[in-house]
Amino acid sequence: MLEALAFYIFAAVTLVSAIGVVASRNIVRSAVCLLGTLGGVACLYFLLNANLLAAIQLIVYAGGTLILIVFGVMLTSKSPWVVFDPTRGQVVGAVIVSILLATGLCMLLVGNEWPAGTAMTASPHVKDVGTMLLTDYLVPFEAASVLLLVVMIGAAYLARPEK
């Protein structure tokens, strides 16, 4: 009962701010709404016994990616009120397609009978997650570190000042 109430509150926060992201014409407001979605999803992670993931979500997404996006907006916009809107026909088409997509996905998912699995009882300890990262998931972990290096060099190269 109580878990349901908490879930509905967090889901409502996530959905309302996700709708805000789409509906807002001002890109900075979209980014602020994205903060609401990220926070709501982090709360859902807490509900789903994923404490570490929730903290990572807050620290990487909300503290890093979002700031990067707002920073990008500041560097690329001439005034807060410049908007480029799609035409009405494009919007209507996109809304219809996405509603169809959402209903289709929901019907598919709800109609499916998932095999009975084992439920998680407690949040996995940080130490266990770290051990998994360095044993079972070592190759993706190392690949990710190489990828990050590539991204760092690439971003620095792309954003270098013009000669």
């Binding site: 404490n51 570490l52 903290a55 807050l58 620290i59 909300a62 503290g63 890093g64 940080v126």
Partner: peptide
């Protein structure tokens, strides 16, 4: 919290 330090850092980042 078992992730207390990360949580505090995240909050300072927000």
């Amino acid at each position: 919290l078992d992730v207390a330090l990360l949580f505090i850092l995240a909050m300072l980042g927000i």
